[in-house]
Every structure is written in C-alpha cells, then in structure tokens.
C-alpha cells in the first residue's frame, strides 16, 4: 500500500532528512515536509515527528515544540485517530504534548549516548510491531534525555493496556539492567497511546534502514506500519 507521510520540520530538527530519505527513497512512499509554522497537514496518512533538537532543547526537550502552530493540528489529528509516530526528539515532544504518557529525563550516566543497541518488540498487535512477531532488532540510539520515567499507576496502566512496544534487551532478547543504556523504567524504549494511533520510541529505526550502512533491522518497523495500516 502507498501511504502519504508528513515529516514535521521544527527549527533544530536534524533527523528530518533521515526519515524522509528512508520513507521516500527506500520505501518509495509519498513523503512531504511539514513546516512548523504551518497548520495544514496536507492530507497525510502518517505524521512523523523526527529526531533532533527542536528549539535547541531549550527549557526542556520538546517543551517549546509542543507550542508551535503545527502541533495544534497534529494534536487534533491524533485525537481524531490519525497515526502519529515520534522518534527520539519526536517521542519527547509527544510526551510533552500529553499525547503519550510519561516523560523522558536525562540518561542515567548524565551523558549523551550514541551507539547501536538491541530492542525487543514486546507487543505483537500494534501497527508498528504486529509484523515483528516479538523479534529483537538492532537500532541505534542517540540521545541525552532518553530515560523513560513514569509513576507506578501509569506504568501499571501501560502494562495492562499492552502499550509498551519495545524494551531494551540483549541481542538474545534478555531484558535486564545490563542491557538498559539509559536507565529507562522497565527498560522501556517505545510506547503507544491507549487507542493505538500515537507511537513514540527513543531508538532510531530510520538509522538502521539502509543496507549500505550495514544495518537494516529498523526497516521492519516501517514495513509493519505499511503492512498493517488500514486506510
């Protein structure tokens, strides 16, 4: 199926080109950039909030981005059931906007971390993970604030509603502190909202979707989305 993707460009977004490249040139989908000062989502089927440092991460990651004109439209779109996928800074913007529960605080070691890590899909029914069949994937992380945190009650509801998509793990799907790069509660790497149309993850699937770079696991997440999207 061909879908139309809109990649939002905030001032300071820097993975916008990377998502665009994978969607447009590798997966051959119709893809457009959406400017933060605009409000028109151009009839996109899926909105991508890319990684980067929107508004320089000033105040808090995502705190200024959530106030930009385009986010009003994105929030409306999401509330009406539209599919929104936030990667890294995009995930941070989604939690700041209240579209996803919880928050992302500074990594446990207080340092920016960029490296290849493994995540295991723990949900096998969402748009993003259905086709993954609980597989373990290699995807890079690159963030300073990726330490997912939430209160016990929210955590419980995330678990009960099967909203946890990915957890940090070993290459053999072992989930433990040893394989938790940033201190995230329960090794959480990605979640969705209750209705299953808003997704956020800290790892970068768009960075492991090009064979030339020697990593292709991330492609499976985009493929799951394409395969299971219902227009």
């Amino acid at each position: 199926m061909k879908l139309k993707f809109g990649v939002v460009v905030f001032p300071g977004s820097n993975c916008d080109h990377d998502s665009y490249h994978v969607l447009k040139h590798i997966l051959d989908q119709e893809t457009v950039y959406l400017w933060h000062k605009d409000t028109n989502l151009q009839n996109c089927d899926v909105i991508i909030l890319p990684g980067g440092f929107s508004y320089g991460d000033y105040i808090r990651t995502g705190a200024v981005a959530k106030l930009s004109p385009i986010m009003n439209s994105v929030i409306d779109f999401a509330n009406k059931g539209g599919v929104v996928f936030g990667i890294c800074n995009g995930f941070q913007i989604l939690t700041e906007s209240g579209l996803l529960p919880g928050t992302l605080i500074k990594n446990k070691n207080l340092k920016f971390i960029c490296k290849d890590i493994y995540i295991t899909a723990v949900n096998d029914s969402s748009l993003l993970t259905k086709s993954l069949e609980k597989k373990t994937l290699m995807t890079p992380i690159a963030h300073g604030e990726g330490n997912y945190f939430t209160d016990d009650e929210t955590l419980k509801s995330l678990q009960q509603n099967n909203q946890i998509l990915f957890r940090y793990s070993s290459s053999k799907a072992e989930i433990s502190d040893e394989y938790n790069p940033n201190g995230s509660i329960k090794n959480i790497a990605g979640i969705m909202n209750k209705s299953g149309n808003v997704f956020g993850m800290m790892p970068h699937p768009e960075r492991s979707s090009d064979g030339l770079l020697g990593k292709t696991d991330g492609m499976q997440i985009f493929n799951s989305l394409l395969k299971n999207f219902i227009k």
Partner: peptide, 14 residues
C-alpha cells in the same frame, strides 16, 4: 569519547 558524539545523524556514516 565517541559514544558521546552523534556519529550517525544524516545516515551517511558507513
């Protein structure tokens, strides 16, 4: 050192 640097952004790093 280099794990504190984003070495992959813009997906060109082979």
């Amino acid at each position: 050192v280099y794990e504190q640097y984003d070495s992959m952004v813009r997906t060109n790093t082979v």
